[in-house]
Design a protein around this nucleic acid. Sequence first.
RNA 1: GGACGUUUAGCUCAGCUGGUUAGAGCGUCUCGUUUACACCGAGAAGGUCGCAGGUUCGAAUCCUGCAACGUCCACCA
Length: 888
Amino acid sequence: MAKIEIPKVYEAKQYEDKIYSAWEKSGFFNPDNLKGDPFAIMMPPPNVTGVLHLGHALENALMDCMARYQRMRGRKVLLVPGTDHAALPTQAKVEKMLMEKGMQNPRKELGREKLVEKIREFAEESRITILSQIKKMGTSCDWSRLAYTFDESRNRAVNELFCRLYKDGLIYRGYRVVNWSVKGQSTSSDDEIIFVERPAKLYTFKYSSDFPIAIATTRPETKLGDTAVAVHPSDARYSSYIGQVLTVDVGAAKPLQIKIIADEQVDPEFGTGALGVTPAHSAVDFAMYEKQKSKGEPIDLIPVIGPDGKMTKEAGEQYAGLSVEDARAKFVLWLRKQNLLMNEEDITQNVGTSDRYGDVIESLPMTQWWLDVKKEIPSKGKSLCDLMREAVTTGLDGDSSKKVILTPDRFTKLYLDRVDHLRDWCLSRQIWWGHRIPVWYRGDEIFVGIEPPTGEGWEQDSDTLDTWFSSGSWTFSTLGWPEKTKDLKTFHPTQWIQMGYEILYLWLMRMVLMSAYALDEIPFKDAYIHGMLRDQHGEKFSKSMGNGIDPIEVIDQYGSDALRISLLIGISPGNDSRYYTEKIESGRNFVNKLWNISRFVLTSTDMLSPELVEGVKSQTLADRWIFSRFATVTKEVTDHLEKYEFSQAGEKLRDFTWNEFADWYLEIAKIQFQDTNYQLPTINCLHFLLRNLLILWHPFMSFVTEVIWKNLSQDLLIVQPWPSEKLKYIDSNAEQDFSRVQQLIISIRNIRAQYKVRPDKKVDIRLQSSDKKVRQLLQENITIIKTLARVNDIEITNEIAEPQSGCALVALEKIIIHVMLPNEDLESERERIEKECQNLEVYIQTTETKLENKEFVSKAPVHIVETMQSKLQEAKEKFETICIQSKK
RNA sequence: GGACGUUUAGCUCAGCUGGUUAGAGCGUCUCGUUUACACCGAGAAGGUCGCAGGUUCGAAUCCUGCAACGUCCACCA
C-alpha cells in the first residue's frame, strides 16, 4: 500500500468549502435522514440590518458544537437556519443610507411601495451574505428548512396569532401614551428605548402667583398640558388641597383646570413634594390619569406636543408650531417675567432615546394596538404574565416537564423581575417594513382577520407589527404552525437554544409568551445564555469605535476551526469574553498540532484494515496508561457537554491530546516501533486513539477532523457514533505506574537542564529502590527512560548507595535517582539540595501539625487523613535520603 | 435608588457541591534544527486567590461588611 502524503501545515482554506459541500450533499444536516430521538435547535435569526460579526461566530460555534455532539450521540438533530427582517432597525438603516445619498425624506419621496422595495433589495443582499457566512462557519443546519421571519409562512403564523389574541381580548386598540420617535415617526416598545444620562435643568415654579403649591420639572413646556398636581396622600403640607380644582392661565389655548390629587407614588422628599401631572406626555402621569378615571374622579388629558415634535394648538397660540426646545425657553422666560420661577437647578437625568433613530423619545397619546399582558386569558384563567412566570418556576400548569431551564441560573431571577414590571406591549409601528397589521377599517367598522374582508371600501391598517411579534413565534412558526405539521409534532418544544443575555427580555420572554399561549408548550427546554464578545481591551465591538472584526476575514486567515475553538475555550456561560489575536493563534496552533499528530500516525504506519483496529489489544504499560486516560477523558468531555460546559470539555480534550497523547504516547510509540513484538499493537493503538480523538474533537473543530477522517474511512465523520465511555479501559494501576515513570523522566531532564548538560550528551544514572515491584517497573521501561531522558547507562539497585561526588541526587516516591554529572558542579548541587530540603522541612512540619490536631483527625473524612499521612511518610523518606545522606 | 456580575501568575481566564504543596493558554527566561509538527520540543521562573471580619478541624470556594470596575433595571418629576 502506498504511503500517504500529507502536508506539514494544515491550510484550512484548501479544504473547508469542499468539506461543507460534502456534508450538505450527504443529507445528514436534514433530520429526515437521521434516526433517534429528536433534538431541535432554532438558530436565533440574525438581523438583515447587516452582516455577521464575531458575536455571531460565537453563537454558531455554540449551536453547531451542540448539534454535532447530539448528532454523534445518535439524536435526530434539527438545526433550523434563518434570518430576521428586523422591521424597524432595517427600515431605519435603509432610510439613513438613502438620506446619506441626498434624499431628504425617503418616505415622502418614494412612497410606501418604492421604499419597501428598496428595503427589500437591501435585506435580500444581507440575507444572502449572512447565509453564506453561516456556511463558512461550518454550521450544520438543515437548509431545506430555511426560514425568514418575513416570508409567507411566517406571515401566516403572525396573522393567526394576532387574530387569536384579538379574539381572546388580549389585543386591543387603545388611546394611550406611547413612546414616540419624532425622527422615526413611529412608536417603539419599552424595550427599544436606551436611557442616556444627560445634564438637565430642574425648574421649580408655580402656575400662578396665588397657586398654593409649587412644582418641579425638567420639562416646563409640557406643563402647558398639566391637568393635575399630585402629592403624597400623607403629606401634611398639601393634604388640605386634595380634591380641589384650581384654574390657572399659563398661556395655553385654554385656562388649565388643575385638580389636586393624592398618589402614593409621589416622593414627598423630591423637589417640592408635588408633581405636575401631564397625562398626555408622561407614562407615569398617564397611569395616574387612568387611575383617576377608574376612581371616578377623572382629570383631563391635553396633548401639547404633536407627532411632528412641535407644540400643538392646545399649547396656545404663542407656542403652537414651536419646537419643544424653543417652547421650553419661551415658557421659562414667561415664568421668570411673571416672577413665578422659584428655582433653577442643574441635575443629571435619564432620558430615553430611540435605539435605532437615536432621538429623544417623546411620550404622546395615540391610538395604537396593544397586547394586554395582565388580562386573564379566557380559556386559561390566567394572564400572559402568569404563563411567563410559570414557565421558569413550576413549569406550565405546574407541570415540571414544561419548565424552561436557564443556564446560568441567575438569569431566571432577572427574568422574573422583568415579568413583574411588564406593561402592555405596544404592537403597532408606523413604518412600512414589516408584517402589516391584519385589521381592516370601513367607517366605524373594524375587521380583524387572516384574510381580507369581502365587500367594498375596506382599507387595511397602514401600520406594521413590532418585529418581536414575529420572532416570538420563531420556535413553532419555523415548524409550520398553525398547520399541524409532522415537524411541529416531532420537534416542538425544542430541546436547546443559545442566545446572548442582551435579548433575554426582548426575545426569550416573548418566545415563552407566544409558545405558552398558542401551543400550551414551552418553546425550549434549555436556554444557554452566553456573554458578549468584546475586544482585547474589554470594549464592546461597535461600528463607531471602529474596532469591528470580520469573522470571514479571520476564517480566511486562520481557518474556521481555529476561530471556533478559540471562541469556545476560555468562556463561561453568561460572562463576557475577550477576543484577541493571540487567542486565535493558539487555536490555529492547536489545529495544526492535531493535524500533525494525525500526520505522524498516518504516515508512519501503513493503513490497516478496520478489523484490526477494532480488535486492538494494548500490551505495554504506556498502552494501558493512554487507554485509561482516554477513557477518563471521554467520560469527562461527555459529562461537560451534557452540562453545556463547552469550555471545560474543550480544555480537557486539548490537554489530553497535546500533553498526554502527543507529548508522551507518540514519543513512546516511536520507541515501541523498534521492537517487532510491539510494532503492530502500537500501530493499532495509535489508530484506535486517533479515530476516537477525531470523533471527540469533531463538535469543536469540524472541518479539520473531517479532512483527516477521509484517510481513515469512506464514511463521513459527522455521523460517527460518539465513543461510549469505555470504562473497561480505566486502569488505575497503569496510571500510577506510568506516572512514576513520567516523574522519573521529568526529574532527569530537570537535572540535565539545571546543569546545562548538552542535549546530545547522554548521562549515566543509578536508580535505587527498596521496592521490588518498582525495580521491576523500571526495568520493564528502561528503554523508554533511556530514550526520553537521554540516558546512557542505568543501574537499578536495591542497595542504598553513597552518593558519589559529581552526582546529583533526587528523591521520588520510592525511588532515589543518582545522576552522574559529566561536569562536576558541587556548589550548585549543594544549593539545590538545600533548597529542596527546606521545602521538605516546611511541608513536613505543617503536615505534622495538621495531623497532630485531634479535631482534624476525628472530623475530616478518612481518605483525606490517609492521603495526608502517606504524603507525610513519603516526604519524610525523601528527607531522610536526600538531606541526611547528602550531609554525610 | 435597587439588582446582578467581576476582582486568582505580567496579560486573558478556568477552578462544579469547602479537603493533596491553587491550574491552563499567551507572554518571559534557559536550552534545543531528535525523520509528526519551530503554528515545534525540553526545562524553569512567576500567585499572602480585591480588603476586613465570621463560620469550620480545614476557605480561592460558604456567610457578613467594605472597595474598585462593569452590566441591567427603576416614574426621582
